[in-house]
Computed example of a mutant assay.
Amino acid sequence: MPNFELMPIGVFAQRTGLTSSALRFYADSGLLPPAEIDPVSGYRYYSADQAARAIELRQLRQIAMPLGAVEAVLDAEPDEASRLIDEHVAKVVEDAEAVQQKAALIKSSLANVPRVPIATLKGPVLADAIEQVLTATARDPGMPVLEGVRVEATQEAVTLTATDRYRLATRTLVPAEAAPSAWAATVRSDELRAAVGEIRRSMLVRVEATSNGIWLRTSDRKNQHCRLLSEEFPDYRLMLASLPEVTTRLTVPKGLLLRALEEHPGEWLSLCVTRHGLKALAADDEHPGFSLPAAVTGQALQISFELTTLYPAISTAIGPDVMLDLRGPNQPVTVRSADRGDLTTLAMPIKPDHSA
């Protein structure tokens, strides 16, 4: 290669954003050997064709990718390189989450960190309540609080609430031992989900709060720590208080309704409620609707839902029969057990033209 086509290491460093020392390191590592080394002076020269590889190498190191993975990406086809980058980013995020959780755990374990007793609850009951409201959480980068579960404690009850803006699930528990004062915070749903297994196998769980999390303490199992979210939780109580009056109420066997929803084709369905029962309109000529027996009071109406909104609301209801309180085709429907009202879910309908 003629010398006029080569760049000294300093010029190549300026063009690629790498320092001369970094270029020497990558040359010695085999990732980016120079195009030519002067046998007398030892000066290193690089070609313009190497600039793209050098820039990509720098960018990969900027996202903390180890050398072995960098080499694999540089030598891979575009699709494979993208996959390797995604794997690395996922691991970095996972590691960061683990570090944050361990840091919060260490801080909460410090002797001088005040702990506030919240309540003592039956472990299996608390585990069921957590799993029921978790169906209404959502991962939304624009609203991180939707990934949380609102925990509110008074001397009379502990209430768990979650919402993804299309559903709202709330469950009220009677504590075995109540706290001396009211307390409320939003807890990370992923860490509550991870704690469910230990909670379920514990007869009693004592809930304690610190400034950055809650402890779920048991007498014979590993204590669980869950971090808090700082974002403000939606004012769901105001929304509940502003709901119109119920115009139609129907009670239907939960098992029959779930089976019908599972077999229903498509992503949405329209329900007709009359004094004769509950009927789903046909999706098309090849997929007829279904009819179910139901006890109905109030006005007849037609209402439409996304299946992904309605099904979880029905499936988490407690008991053999589910009660639906309807307020009109464009108002939230309240779903709860026909004989146990401690779990309540609100599900948003869609417009008759099936838009959100």
Rank of each mutant, 00 (worst) to 15 (best):
E97H: 12
E71W: 07
Q155Y: 02
D86A: 10
A182H: 04
C272I: 12
A300V: 00
G266V: 03
T120P: 01
G68M: 09
D164P: 04
T210Y: 03
R44M: 09
P117S: 03
R275F: 05
L243Q: 14
V335L: 03
G328W: 07
S189W: 07
T297Q: 12
D339I: 13
L228G: 02
Q101D: 09
I55S: 02
M143C: 06
G289K: 05
A185Q: 05
A294N: 02
S315A: 15
I118A: 08
R217D: 06
P234D: 05
F25A: 07
Q155K: 06
V89A: 04
L121P: 08
I63V: 15
L146Q: 10
D28R: 14
L257E: 01
D95H: 12
F25Q: 06
A347E: 03
V196L: 11
Q132A: 14
A209S: 09
L326A: 10
R188D: 15
D95F: 02
F290R: 13
V187E: 07
A157W: 10
E71M: 13
P33F: 03
T163F: 05
H354G: 02
A136W: 07
D342F: 00
N112Q: 15
G68W: 03
V40Y: 06
R200G: 04
V73F: 07
L134A: 03
D38G: 00
D140A: 01
D284M: 11
G289A: 12
A209W: 01
L32S: 02
V158M: 09
A283Y: 14
S230W: 06
V252I: 12
E147K: 14
L23T: 00
R15G: 00
A313E: 11
D325N: 10
L110T: 05
V205E: 01
G142K: 14
A179D: 00
T186C: 05
A178W: 08
